[in-house]
Amino acid sequence: KFGRVHERAEGPAKILAIGTATPFHWVDQSSYPDYYFRVTNSDHLVDLKEKFRRICNRTMISKRHMFLTEEILQKNPNLCSHNEPSFDVRQDILVSEIPKLGKEAVLMAIDEWAQPKSKITHLVFCTRSGVDMPGADYQLIKLLGLSPSVQRVMMYQQGCFAGGTMLRLAKDLAENNKGARVLVVCAESSAIGFRGPSEDHPDNLIAQALFGDGAAALIIGSDPKMGLERPIFEIVTTAQTFVPNGDCHLALHLREMGLTFHCTKDVPPTIAKNVESCLIKAFEPLGISDWNSIFWILHPGGNAIVDQVESTLGLEPNKLQATRNILREYGNLSSACVLFILDEIRKKSGREGLKTSGDGLDLGVLLSFGPGLTIETVVLR
């Protein structure tokens, strides 16, 4: 008597548009150690500064975009301390800036989509910054002038794996609601975790050397309108798992001094060791076991992770080039990073006149991972 209210779509979910945005301000990685130790009044920690310089040199990052300028840091000195309470200051900045950054990426996506924004039916927003109620999803709806009846899902504090999570959720929403057009937004800022150095917490140096700011937005829907919408990728399958006891290797915690970062040297080999089982589960039903026969979007948690995944799986050097390019130009953008790589690989395919948006290949994989050593596996066509 009370059956399904919403009719299912006929076809699989497809990515119809991609937009990205970054803050205008950026830092050069080669000179960042001098800048970082100067603005945090830590130049007296000579040995720690040299250690940080070595870490920065190993990241293979060229530059990173950041909202925090020297002027902002001078006005808010607690942000430059390692342990002073600064959460309220971070909140005041990020509750406002995260939706604005997301808006810039959304406008780029809508411009490519070339359809009225009134056709957006759902919003899925993800960030690890600016936790608030009502959330960044609500603020973004107002900034864009979208209908208050847009169906919203707000996900805070997920971390680097969440780019894949957003695709998984959007696929379910698009395929189970005929005519749905799902706006996916990942907006991230390193301002939540920026803090001064400490000899007692070397993990913090890794975070300060890796993370950048950026937002990515996608429009996802099934059954694209012929002649009006141009699909870029099809989302074939999605899956999530985590490595048992992985939280002892990688975890982040909200504290009075901001978001703290805990990471062990076992993260790269542990991820590399567990990736292939995810690939087998995803691609065995499709008859694929040659990992060089697919295109790759791999989250660059750090250069060591990229190198070890490449080595463990025997990947050809060009397979992870898009990942390395984004890491070099932006650093680790947390949940937004794989979506930047997705954009990079389709643009490169277009520039080179390849037959598909995925490096000329039919199928590919998007792998994202993060806290708890959670792994998201997304098969794309």
Score class of each variant (00 low, 15 high):
Gly3Ala: 07
Arg4Gln: 13
Arg4Ala: 14
Arg4Gly: 13
Arg4Met: 15
Val5Gly: 10
Val5Cys: 09
His6Leu: 10
His6Asp: 08
Glu10His: 06
Lys14Val: 05
Lys14His: 15
Ile15His: 00
Gly19Lys: 03
Gly19Ser: 07
Ala21Gly: 04
Ala21Phe: 04
Thr22Lys: 11
Thr22His: 15
Thr22Ala: 09
His25Ser: 11
Trp26Asn: 03
Trp26Gln: 01
Trp26Val: 08
Val27Arg: 01
Gln29Glu: 04
Ser30Tyr: 00
Ser30Cys: 07
Ser31Pro: 04
Tyr32Asn: 03
Pro33Gln: 04
Tyr35His: 06
Phe37Asp: 01
Arg38Met: 04
Val39Glu: 10
Val39Thr: 09
Thr40Ala: 08
Asn41His: 09
Asn41Ile: 12
His44Cys: 00
Val46Ala: 07
Asp47Leu: 00
Lys49Pro: 04
Lys49Leu: 06
Glu50Phe: 00
Glu50Ser: 10
Phe52Asp: 01
Cys56Asn: 06
Cys56Val: 05
Cys56Arg: 10
Asn57Ser: 05
Arg58Leu: 15
Ile61Val: 07
Ile61Ala: 08
Lys63Asn: 09
Met66Ala: 08
Phe67Val: 13
Leu68Arg: 12
Leu68Val: 10
Ile72Trp: 07
Ile72Met: 08
Ile72Ala: 05
Ile72Asp: 01
Leu73Trp: 11
Leu73Pro: 12
Lys75Arg: 12
Leu79Ala: 00
Cys80Gly: 10
Ser81Gly: 03
Asn83Trp: 10
Asn83Glu: 08
Glu84Val: 14
Glu84Thr: 13
Pro85Phe: 00
Ser86Cys: 08
Ser86Tyr: 03
Ser86Gln: 13
Asp88Trp: 09
Val89Ile: 13
Val89Arg: 11
Asp92Pro: 02
Asp92Gln: 11
Ile93Gln: 12
Val95Gly: 14
Val95Arg: 11
Glu97Lys: 05
Ile98Lys: 07
Ile98Met: 11
Lys100Asp: 07
Lys100Ser: 11
Leu101Ile: 06
Val106His: 06
Leu107Ala: 12
Met108Arg: 15
Met108Leu: 07
Ala109Asp: 05
Ile110Asp: 01
Ile110Glu: 02
Glu112His: 00
Glu112Thr: 09
Trp113Cys: 03
Ala114Leu: 01
Gln115Leu: 04
Pro116Val: 02
Pro116Arg: 04
Lys119Ala: 08
Ile120Phe: 01
Ile120Leu: 09
Ile120Gly: 04
Thr121Gln: 02
Thr121Asp: 06
Val124Glu: 02
Phe125Ser: 03
Thr127Leu: 07
Arg128Cys: 10
Ser129Cys: 15
Val131Ile: 14
Asp132Val: 13
Met133Gly: 10
Pro134Asp: 08
Pro134Ser: 09
Pro134Trp: 08
Pro134Arg: 12
Gly135Ala: 06
Gly135Met: 14
Ala136Gly: 11
Tyr138Gln: 13
Gln139Leu: 12
Leu140Ala: 02
Leu140Tyr: 00
Ile141Cys: 14
Leu143Ser: 13
Leu143Arg: 09
Leu143Phe: 10
Leu144Val: 00
Pro148Cys: 00
Pro231Asn: 04
Phe233Ile: 03
Phe233Ser: 11
Glu234Asp: 09
Thr237Asn: 11
Thr237Leu: 00
Thr238Leu: 11
Thr238Ser: 06
Ala239Asp: 11
Ala239Gly: 08
Ala239Val: 05
Thr241Met: 12
Val243Tyr: 07
Val243Met: 04
Pro244Lys: 09
Pro244Ala: 11
Asn245Gly: 09
Asn245Arg: 10
Asp247Ile: 00
Asp247Ser: 10
Cys248Thr: 09
His249Pro: 11
His249Asn: 07
Leu250Gly: 06
Ala251Gln: 14
Leu252Tyr: 13
Leu252Arg: 11
His253Tyr: 09
His253Val: 07
Leu254Trp: 05
Glu256Met: 10
Glu256Trp: 03
Leu259Pro: 15
Thr260Trp: 10
Phe261Val: 08
His262Asp: 15
His262Cys: 15
Cys263Lys: 13
Lys265Asp: 11
Lys265Tyr: 02
Val267Phe: 09
Pro268Val: 03
Pro269Asn: 09
Thr270Cys: 12
Ile271Phe: 05
Ile271Leu: 09
Lys273Gln: 13
Glu276Met: 12
Ser277Trp: 14
Ser277Ala: 12
Ser277Lys: 14
Ser277Leu: 05
Leu279Pro: 00
Ile280Trp: 00
Ala282Val: 13
Phe283Cys: 08
Glu284Lys: 07
Gly287Tyr: 00
Ile288Ala: 04
Ser289Ala: 06
Ser289Gly: 07
Trp291Gln: 01
Trp291Arg: 06
Trp291Val: 07
Ile294Pro: 03
Ile294Gln: 12
Trp296Gly: 05
Ile297Met: 05
Ile297Asp: 03
His299Ala: 13
Pro300Ser: 07
Gly301Tyr: 00
Gly301Ile: 05
Gly302Ala: 11
Ala304Asn: 09
Ile305Leu: 10
Ile305Glu: 02
Ile305Met: 07
Val306Arg: 05
Val306Phe: 15
Val306Leu: 14
Asp307Phe: 04
Val309Cys: 06
Val309His: 00
Val309Asn: 00
Thr312His: 12
Thr312Phe: 07
Gly314Met: 01
Gly314Val: 05
Leu315Met: 03
Leu315Phe: 00
Glu316Leu: 12
Pro317Arg: 12
Pro317Gly: 06
Lys319Pro: 02
Lys319Leu: 01
Gln321Arg: 07
Gln321Asp: 15
Gln321Glu: 02
Ala322Gly: 04
Thr323Val: 07
Thr323Leu: 01
Arg324Gly: 05
Arg324Glu: 01
Asn325Gln: 14
Asn325His: 06
Asn325Pro: 14
Leu327Lys: 03
Glu329Lys: 12
Glu329Gln: 15
Tyr330Gln: 04
Tyr330Thr: 12
Gly331Trp: 01
Leu333Pro: 07
Ser334Trp: 00
Ser334Glu: 14
Ser335Met: 00
Ala336Asp: 04
Ala336Thr: 07
Val338Leu: 02
Leu339Met: 12
Leu339Cys: 05
Phe340Leu: 10
Leu342Phe: 05
Leu342Trp: 06
Leu342Gln: 13
Asp343Trp: 01
Asp343Gln: 00
Ile345Tyr: 02
Ile345Val: 10
Lys347Leu: 00
Lys347Trp: 03
Lys348Asn: 12
Ser349Gln: 09
Gly350Val: 15
Glu352Cys: 15
Lys355Thr: 08
Ser357Pro: 05
Asp359His: 09
Asp359Asn: 08
Gly360Ser: 07
Leu361Gln: 12
Leu361Ser: 12
Asp362Thr: 00
Leu363Val: 03
Gly364Cys: 00
Gly364Ile: 00
Val365Ala: 14
Val365Gln: 15
Leu367Glu: 13
Ser368Val: 01
Gly370Glu: 12
Gly370Leu: 14
Leu373Ala: 14
Leu373Thr: 14
Leu373Cys: 11
Thr374Glu: 13
Thr374Met: 13
Thr374Arg: 10
Glu376Asn: 09
Glu376His: 01
Glu376Arg: 01
Thr377Lys: 02
Val378Trp: 04
Val379Asn: 14
Leu380Met: 11
